[in-house]
Lab assay of single mutants.
Amino acid sequence: DLSALRVEEVQNVINAMQKILECPICLELIKEPVSTKCDHIFCKFCMLKLLNQKKGPSQCPLCKNDITKRSLQESTRFSQLVEELLKIICAFQLDTGLEYANSYNFAKKENNSPEHLKDEVSIIQSMGYRNRAKRLLQSEPENPSLQETSLSVQLSNLGTVRTLRTKQRIQPQRTSVYIELGSDSSEDTVNKATYCSVGDQELLQITPQGTRDEISLDSAKKAACEFSETDVTNTEHHQPSNNDLNTTEKRAAERHPEKYQGSSVSNLHVEPCGTNTHASSLQHENSSLLLTKDRMNVEKAEF
């Protein structure tokens, strides 16, 4: 173990290094160091905050020279020094078990990766560091076993998940096959086929009936047209017969005018059967003409 005197000496050296690497504005270890034209180094955030307070150039807090945003430059070497100082402080805390008085939040800088452990060898070769390295080497064999167990647990979990997924996939297939086998029997399929065939026959029977009705309507229309044509021909046949009657009536009127007047009046009210309204109107006109002729003949006879 380190003596108290040596611990104090190391602590004083760390404090001196820390004062050199402090920012003059925030009085902390410089984060993202930036250098000016006057070779003074500050935190990048502190300098941008200072420049944004005034429009135009501002003055350096140490030498009062003008500073602009374009004049600022990043210093990589200074950032490396800060990183190495942080590593020294971490090693000091691990070796002594004491917390550094002016320690900052170094938890963000710590890294437990194997590459980081290899890099620590180049920091300080001390008894405390050696003991700590031995402890780490002793704890390393235990870690692979834990990793193997965790991997086995994960693989077993994956296997159970896969088996569950396969079961879920197989179950719908089985149910679907069961439904297909038990849903419709052979008799049901035959009945469905016969039902479809009967429906098709009914459709075939319905369509000819409609065509037959249309044919019957067409035949009825044709018969009505033929009947009207026969009526017209009958009226045409009746007209010459009426003319013959008129000639006979004229002759009778010349011989017996008194008797014919009474008979002509009675004939006005008689309509021949089986004739249309057109034929009756023609008869009325003929009878009126005959009456006028008879009157003329009677007057001539009187004179």
Rank of each mutant, 00 (worst) to 15 (best):
D1N: 09
S3C: 05
S3F: 03
A4D: 04
L5H: 08
R6S: 08
V7I: 07
E8K: 09
E8V: 03
V10A: 06
V10G: 10
Q11L: 07
Q11R: 02
V13F: 03
I14S: 15
I14V: 06
N15K: 10
A16P: 15
Q18E: 11
I20L: 11
E22A: 10
C26R: 15
E28V: 14
L29V: 04
L29W: 00
K31T: 12
E32Q: 07
E32V: 11
P33H: 09
S35A: 12
K37T: 10
C38Y: 15
D39Y: 08
D39V: 05
K44E: 05
K44N: 06
F45C: 08
F45V: 09
F45Y: 03
L48P: 09
L48V: 09
L50P: 03
L51R: 04
Q53R: 07
K54M: 12
K55T: 05
P57L: 10
S58P: 15
Q59P: 13
Q59K: 09
L62V: 13
L62F: 02
C63G: 14
N65Y: 11
N65I: 07
D66G: 04
D66H: 03
I67R: 08
T68I: 03
R70K: 07
S71G: 12
S75R: 13
T76M: 10
R77G: 12
R77K: 13
V82G: 07
E83D: 04
L85P: 13
L86F: 09
L86V: 01
K87R: 07
I88M: 04
F92S: 14
F92I: 11
Q93R: 13
Q93E: 07
L94I: 08
L94V: 06
L98F: 12
E99K: 10
E99V: 02
E99G: 09
Y100C: 00
F106I: 08
F106Y: 03
A107E: 08
K108R: 09
K109N: 09
E110K: 00
E110D: 12
N112S: 15
P114S: 03
K118I: 13
K118Q: 11
D119N: 06
S122F: 15
I124N: 05
I124T: 06
Q125E: 05
S126C: 08
S126T: 06
M127R: 07
M127K: 15
Y129F: 04
N131I: 11
R135K: 09
R135I: 04
L136I: 08
L137V: 05
L137I: 04
Q138K: 10
Q138L: 04
E140G: 05
P141H: 05
N143H: 02
P144S: 06
P144T: 08
E148G: 12
T149A: 09
L151P: 06
S152R: 08
V153D: 12
Q154H: 12
L155P: 14
N157I: 06
N157Y: 09
L158R: 04
G159A: 14
T160I: 07
V161M: 09
R162T: 04
T163I: 00
R165G: 05
P172T: 14
Q173R: 03
R174G: 14
R174W: 02
V177F: 15
G182E: 10
G182V: 09
S183F: 02
S186Y: 14
T189N: 11
V190D: 11
A193E: 15
T194I: 00
T194N: 05
Y195D: 12
G199E: 09
D200N: 12
E202D: 10
Q205K: 00
Q209R: 15
G210V: 05
T211N: 02
T211I: 01
I215F: 00
S216N: 10
S216I: 13
L217M: 12
D218E: 08
K221N: 09
A223V: 07
A223G: 02
S228C: 02
D231H: 05
V232I: 09
V232G: 10
T233A: 01
T233I: 06
N234Y: 00
S241G: 00
D244N: 03
D244E: 11
D244Y: 00
T247N: 02
A253D: 08
E254A: 02
R255G: 08
P257S: 03
E258G: 12
K259N: 03
K259R: 02
Q261K: 11
G262V: 11
S263T: 05
S264Y: 03
N267K: 14
N267Y: 00
H269Y: 01
H269R: 05
E271K: 05
N276I: 02
N276T: 01
T277S: 14
H278P: 09
H278D: 04
Q283H: 12
L291P: 13
T292A: 03
D294Y: 13
D294N: 10
M296L: 13
N297K: 06
N297T: 00
A301P: 14
E302D: 06
F303V: 09
